[in-house]
Amino acid sequence: MSAQRTRERILDAAVERIASDGIDAVRIARIAMDARVSTALVHYHFATREALLAEALEHSFVTAGEVSDREGDPATRLRWMVESCLPLPGEQERDWVLWVELWLRAVRHPELRPTAARLYARMHDWFREAIEEGDFGPVDAGAIADRTLALIDGFGVRALLGDPAMPLERAREEVWHALAGDLGLRAGTSSS
């Protein structure tokens, strides 16, 4: 097995384990067992928990990014982008758990902040470019991307935690309503 493939297997296992047990409680030996490698090898690839969390997050973002470009008119595409950023059951919910763990961990461990900033910047650019390419008239694409990401996090964390005030469906409609308003679209329609 190539070193690259081994690394990916460790990261796949780490994503699953961190999501279920939490970054603080997760045992490296358990990740090693899931990935069918030795504990020493996990430590060899990832010196600290912070490094493992950072890499696991990057890894899950890369996996998500593989399906990130979809056809369709700009408004439909943006609506789908919003959807792909919310804690939908399955992989997105799992990635969200890592995301929330990252916030806390990065506040305490400044060495993780560049990872967080990089992931935010990537999301920001993704939205900003989709807005600019959409030709929605004279809008401030950067500011709209900022607000959209803040709403995705604020609504998304409540939906993730099962807040009765914010079911997932509502989170999706609220973020889209705000974004559609910013772009001068009617929220009810997905095409411009």
């Binding site: 607000r147 990401l149 803040a150 709403l151 995705i152 996090d153 604020g154 609504f155 964390v157 409540r158 005030a165 914010m166 609220e174 705000a178």
Partner: peptide, 11 residues
């Protein structure tokens, strides 16, 4: 309030 709360938390 829900929307403002979410926006403030996100930021």
């Amino acid at each position: 309030a829900l929307t403002l709360g979410a926006l403030m938390d996100g930021f």
